[in-house]
Amino acid sequence: MTVSDEAVQAAVDPAVDNWLDAGWSDRELRADVSVGLSSTPKELPPKWFYDDLGSELFDEITRLDEYYPTRREREILEREADAIAAASEADCIAELGSGTSTKTRILLDAFAAAGQLRRYVPFDNSAATLRAAAREVADAYPGLAVRGVVGDFEHHLGHLPLDDVDAPTGALPRAPAMVMLLGGTVGNFSPARRPAFLDAVAGAMQTGDTFLLGTDLVKDAGRLVAAYDDAAGVTARFNLNVLSVLNRRLGADFDLDAFAHEAVFDAGNEWIEMRLRSLRTQTVHIPALEMTVDFVAGERMRTEISAKFRPERVRAELGAAGLVVQRMWTDAEGDYALTLARRVRRT
């Protein structure tokens, strides 16, 4: 690419605000592994599943017969996109964990058809993925203002540019914005951490803005477990791959053949728990952390929780954050829900 080509490309690429410095990912990984593998029981956060191979495996998981959430969510989006646009009254969509923004096109089309699509704000912690997706969306929707944010849920939601920075001084108050989190991602937060996350989401919004949330619903335990422990073993490979991430990035010597994938439904907490079970007594070395970790035979390390919700729980948790439910849509089987809640002024 010539210098002039680079200048042209820079002029047309959507703006992206990057709040993560070059060392962020390494610092977060080291801290998470150090704390998680020193805990009892041991655990690793699920965000480290998604290296290139992990992302490919998860994409494969979403197409498996057993894994219903992606299909159910898409079913609701395709059926109710027009109703979501009308109920939100928004002309700006901000998407948390936007990834490739594939499902988002359903809503963008509906908002555009209603004449209320002005701005799109994708938010993700992968700068490369976000920039590519933002470029594709900008190309597909000429005239749409796209401004991406590279950041972390726990630190940077307050930087969501929901207000139009280019609006002239004295302009009329903006239309409502709609922030959304799809894919059931909220279920990966523990009950102790979800309130702070929802408070941060609400804190990024103005009174009158809306929040569109995807949640997997409580159902038969057999179907839930099958969705996380498929017959083809794709989810097992996905789970074990997190050990490969630690081997590659921290110099660890995890033997993937010495661990087995497990998925169980915890009925008391109403969540799926994914684990890696040590098949033998072993010691793992992690040179980058100057750390050794002992596992006894049969010991389980938690790698993910995926909470399942009841409608009343969704309403209560959103309400506690100042987000009042306006509409809730489910698929025909009642497997999954999309909830639209409006930010109200707190007293």
Rank of each mutant, 00 (worst) to 15 (best):
L53F: 12
V121Q: 03
N241M: 04
L240R: 08
V186E: 00
F58R: 09
V201D: 05
G23R: 03
R313M: 15
E80Q: 13
R302H: 11
P311Y: 01
L217C: 07
R194W: 02
D255G: 09
Y120L: 04
R310M: 11
V3F: 15
W19V: 15
M1Y: 14
G115P: 00
L144D: 10
H156V: 09
S38Q: 10
A321N: 05
F49T: 07
L318T: 11
A128S: 15
A192I: 12
G233Q: 06
R147E: 15
T330H: 06
L338I: 02
A297E: 15
F111M: 08
D163L: 12
A140L: 08
R346A: 13
E6M: 15
D32M: 02
V3L: 15
I93P: 06
F58H: 09
D51T: 13
E6P: 10
V137L: 03
R277N: 07
A227Y: 11
P311L: 04
G251H: 04
N18P: 07
P168R: 00
A321P: 03
R343G: 06
V293S: 05
D164F: 10
Q116C: 15
V3T: 15
D216K: 10
R72T: 14
E80C: 12
A94K: 04
R119P: 02
A221S: 09
L338T: 00
S88G: 04
G170C: 02
V165I: 14
F111V: 12
D82N: 08
A140V: 09
A10T: 08
A204Q: 08
D229T: 08
P311C: 00
S88Y: 02
P168Y: 03
P311R: 05
N125H: 14
D164Y: 11
T169A: 15
P176F: 01
D163Q: 11
T102C: 09
A288W: 13
V264H: 13
T215M: 12
T2Y: 04
D124N: 04
M180W: 04
E28I: 15
G322Y: 04
D164L: 09
A260F: 08
T210A: 11
G23Q: 08
L246P: 05
L279F: 12
D26R: 14
G319P: 06
M180F: 04
V284R: 03
D52I: 12
N247Y: 06
L338R: 02
D51M: 08
P161C: 10
A31D: 09
I106E: 00
G222R: 02
L130K: 01
D229Q: 06
M274C: 11
L182S: 03
K219Y: 11
A15Y: 12
L130Y: 05
K308M: 02
L318R: 01
G148I: 02
R237M: 07
R193S: 15
D164Q: 10
V165H: 14
A7Q: 13
S190Y: 11
E312I: 13
L64S: 04
L198G: 06
Y50G: 00
L323G: 00
A128R: 07
T235L: 00
V179N: 03
D294F: 13
T100E: 10
